[in-house]
Amino acid sequence: MTIPTKSPLTRRSLIAGAGLAGAGLLLPGCDRLDQSPAFRETLRLGERVTMGAQRLVSDRTALAREYDGGDISPIFRSNGTRMPGTPDYAAWLAGGFADWRLAVDGMVARPLSLSLAQLGAMPVREQTTRHDCVEGWSAIGRWTGTPLKLLLDAAGVRNTARYLIFHCADLYGARPYYESIDMIDALHPQTILAWALNGRMLPVGNGAPLRLRVERQLGYKQAKYITRIEAVATLATSYGGKGGLWEDTNDYEWYAGI
């Protein structure tokens, strides 16, 4: 017979001690882990796995839910910039956006410069869809606009272009807003450049004169006040390099499908 080397009491206090220490260290521990770039990179794997998994189970042309007119939110909440304060924007607004132009350039065969009237003369898509803010709220609105694919076809986007960067007229803080999507979302049938909301020209609070609708992603991807669409091969060389203002400044995910 052997004499036990560990008494139950020490094992007991070990377990209890580990439990207490675990609970006590959890909170400051998580904050400290968050300071570590390596740990943050590890957590960021989640974004890549989620994007891969969601793309895997999604048909490329799977449509976002379209609603009836009765589902439209009485007030479509305006978030982020509600009025771009720049002199350029003030001048465009004063002139009813007659002098405003949308540039389509970068890796394209035929750069475009389009007025609001020219966009309005193109074929139109209308969709009543739900806008989901990353904060958690949702609003439903009827959007009218130009399918992005039509513009990309007209400009002749090179097949080496992988992303579209949407340059915007508004500054958030001191930085210009911008966003980006890849070609899978760019060519999606519901991806439009909307110039009307609920049957009226787009209000300033919702991005006048032109905003992006990319219906399978969250609100911060729906760039407002767009002035230029640039086709690029990489996001790394524009602005902060992460593909969007919120991505650059606040570490939000570039892929906002969830």
Binding site: L27, P28, C30, D31, D34, R40, T42, L43, R44, L45, G46, E47, V49, T50, V134, E135, W246, N250, D251, Y252, E253, I258
Partner: peptide
């Protein structure tokens, strides 16, 4: 703050934790 990860307000950090641990 004692009930949340992280302690100080950060939606993006909380989403990073939540959507990684979800897997």
């Amino acid at each position: 703050g004692w009930a949340t990860i992280p302690t100080a307000y950060s939606l993006s950090a909380a989403r990073r934790w939540h959507l990684f641990f979800a897997w």
